[in-house]
């Protein structure tokens, strides 16, 4: 009886915890910062930033690699094939990301081969700011 009660309590607290984590996860927005402030200390954290596309390369497997820049800083934005499929659902293809366009991007800061990159994951994580 005591054990059944403890199981019930633990089950309920687990469910409540999961619900609270879910509510927090869908409502929490990444920190908005300038591109120049994206530094190695932010690796593993989520940020929202913006910059102009200065480099674009399409990979045969469907990945699209962009580099965005402000005056001094350059950050890579890898858009992996799975993410490109998500963008297609909202009408964005690789042709929409032209060099010179300003975009906003949010995602996880990562470091690959010494280069900082921001990896977007959701369809709202990348937006074209001007035409």
């Amino acid at each position: 009886m005591k054990r059944d009660f403890l199981i019930l309590i633990c089950f309920l607290t687990s469910v409540v915890g999961l619900i609270l984590i879910y509510i927090a996860a869908i409502n929490l927005e990444p920190k908005q910062i300038e591109l120049k402030d994206v530094t190695p200390e932010l690796v593993g954290r989520s940020v929202l930033t913006s910059g102009k596309i200065v480099y674009k390369k399409t990979h045969a497997t469907g990945h699209l690699f962009l580099t965005i820049s402000d005056e001094d800083t350059k950050i890579q934005i890898p858009l992996f094939a799975g993410f490109m499929n998500i963008l297609k659902e909202v009408g964005l293809t690789e042709n929409d990301f032209e060099i010179g366009l300003k975009i906003s991007v949010s995602g996880l800061v990562d470091e690959y081969q010494g280069q900082l990159q921001i990896i977007p994951r959701r369809n709202g994580d990348i937006k074209i700011l001007n035409d």
Partner: peptide, 20 residues
């Protein structure tokens, strides 16, 4: 299943930095 849902939520949200 419950720890799986927990993993999906915590590993793919912005709650805590990925490496922590």
């Amino acid at each position: 299943s419950m720890t799986g849902i927990f993993g999906i939520l915590v590993l793919n949200s912005y709650l805590v930095p990925a490496q922590e």
